[in-house]
Design a protein around this nucleic acid. Structure first.
Lengths: 139, 139
DNA sequence: CATTGTTGTCTAGTTAGAGTAGACAGATCA
DNA sequence: TGATCTGTCTACTCTAACTAGACAACAATG
């Protein structure tokens, strides 16, 4: 078991802005507990050269994550992962999630991805991000 | 069973552009077979006044769906739903889907939505868009 | 304690794309 | 024909993503 690099991949041709792609992927790693509180993320300039973008673009992503309570940014020192209290859920985000989920599934279904493959991708993501809670017979 | 209105909801404060929100939701309805080939969609101007946006914004959404093969646009006549052949799936779209799915799940998980709720929302979307194929033990 | 090099932050500026307004062109019908 | 539907096109405004480069706080080192 080596240093498992935790690589980020961006798509410049995607309509979703790069700073959001970066924030989204780091957030996914944080939710999956791939970073521990107290750990330091690579610097904005380090990530910037890795991805071939401006350091300000990475800084914007870090600032978003800091606003969400994931990071503590200290100038001159770096980006520190902090322990975060999960907010209480709102019905609005849940219904909005349902909407975006349907749209996303419809999009890939229309692109030819099979229902089995879609379910399989979800299970993979769910076990990584949600654990195995509530697998058989939900609720 | 009445005329089940098939309403579209848009969020002007969302970062995803309105024309894409419209296209995404109509595509979801098309995948869910809520429209039949031969049926006519409401006109761009009709949808525009319903949503309170410019008719060109709706036209852009319709044009996207036409490019995907869902609609046939005939000026002076309207937007016709056509029968579409599903393209063969590419591994790229599937892995990109996995990525976007993880990002989306991480986002709502971070917002406090419970794992059970997330799984429940997925099941709801899946049965509406994918049918019940492959429910127990995938693959 | 000064110096040097690191870190994140800030200010400007460019550019691409979303949205709008309004004219245009094909289709339908009285 | 004339009136009025339909989607299309052109021109314009405005916001936001991205970049370049200077700036400020901190650390390391002599």
């Amino acid at each position: 078991m080596g240093s498992s690099k935790k690589v980020i991949r961006i798509d410049l041709s995607s309509p979703v802005p790069v700073y959001r792609q970066i924030a989204d992927q780091i957030r996914a790693m944080l939710v999956a507990r791939e970073f521990s509180p107290g750990e330091r993320l690579p610097t904005v300039r380090q990530v910037a050269v890795d991805l071939g973008v401006n350091h300000n673009t990475v800084a914007e992503a870090y600032r978003n994550l800091a606003e969400e309570g994931w990071l503590s940014l200290e100038r001159g020192r770096g980006a520190l992962v902090v322990s975060r209290t999960t907010p209480s859920p709102s019905p609005k985000v849940r219904s909005a999630f349902g909407q975006r989920l349907r749209d996303l599934i419809a999009q890939v279904r229309a692109a030819g991805v099979s229902p089995q493959a879609i379910r399989s991708e979800f299970e993979e993501a769910a076990t990584a991000l949600l654990g195995r809670e509530g697998k058989g017979s939900a609720r």
